[in-house]
Simulated scan of single mutants.
Amino acid sequence: MKNKDVKRSDVEKKLIGRREKVSFPELGIEEIEAKIDTGAYTSAIHCSDIHEEVQPDGTKVIALDLLDPSHPQYNHKKLKFSEYDFREIKNSFGDVQERYVITTKIQVFDEVIEAEFSLSDRSDMKYPVLIGRKLLKGRFVVDVSRKNVAFKSRNKQQKKI
């Protein structure tokens, strides 16, 4: 293939592994392990005690605990979101579930990306965060033989400074 035939978007994609350490700057979570799942469309994050509340001014919010008390990065903060959606999402078994979906920022490498995450109880899963195709598309290429590529790259860059 000649250089002029290579799409600009193909050149800019970063290589990531099957697992990556990511951060959520708006949620106060640093370097949490995420599973990269090209079979999943929507990304997901583990939450517990997810429920809707009505504020004194009448607005609805969803309240939740990010992660759960058994997770080492659980920070005991009750989070509330006034902007959210409620959608049907297929789980890993192909069953449709209704889940809340929020938009928040995730950091992979030094790139901060605004992305949608469905909120679900992932306590039975090995990884509290799942990164799906919608977030990956146009940004990353997955090498399933590698892991923590972004995390290792960030550490190398920080040591150079």
Rank of each mutant, 00 (worst) to 15 (best):
residue 81 F to D: 03
residue 72 P to N: 02
residue 101 V to A: 02
residue 101 V to T: 10
residue 38 T to P: 08
residue 51 H to P: 10
residue 45 I to F: 12
residue 74 Y to P: 05
residue 72 P to E: 03
residue 85 D to Q: 13
residue 95 D to H: 15
residue 35 K to G: 02
residue 89 I to G: 10
residue 91 N to H: 09
residue 38 T to N: 12
residue 50 I to P: 06
residue 37 D to W: 04
residue 96 V to Q: 04
residue 48 S to E: 03
residue 99 R to W: 14
residue 103 T to Q: 13
residue 106 I to G: 01
residue 102 I to D: 05
residue 74 Y to I: 01
residue 65 D to M: 07
residue 86 F to Q: 00
residue 49 D to H: 15
residue 88 E to Y: 07
residue 106 I to T: 12
residue 56 P to R: 06
residue 74 Y to L: 02
residue 81 F to V: 02
residue 104 T to K: 08
residue 53 E to C: 05
residue 34 A to H: 01
residue 92 S to T: 14
residue 61 V to A: 04
residue 43 S to H: 02
residue 72 P to R: 00
residue 79 L to M: 14
residue 74 Y to A: 00
residue 104 T to S: 13
residue 100 Y to W: 15
residue 78 K to P: 09
residue 38 T to D: 08
residue 96 V to Y: 07
residue 54 V to I: 15
residue 53 E to P: 02
residue 61 V to Y: 12
residue 106 I to C: 06
residue 80 K to R: 04
residue 40 A to F: 13
residue 104 T to C: 10
residue 50 I to F: 09
residue 98 E to P: 00
residue 80 K to Q: 05
residue 91 N to M: 09
residue 91 N to V: 11
residue 57 D to S: 08
residue 79 L to F: 15
residue 62 I to D: 11
residue 73 Q to F: 14
residue 92 S to L: 10
residue 89 I to Y: 13
residue 68 D to C: 04
residue 35 K to I: 09
residue 58 G to E: 11
residue 101 V to F: 12
residue 44 A to D: 05
residue 43 S to I: 07
residue 66 L to C: 11
residue 90 K to E: 09
residue 48 S to R: 10
residue 63 A to D: 00
residue 40 A to Q: 08
residue 91 N to W: 14
residue 35 K to C: 03
residue 34 A to D: 00
residue 60 K to H: 13
residue 74 Y to G: 00
residue 78 K to D: 06
residue 102 I to V: 11
residue 58 G to A: 11
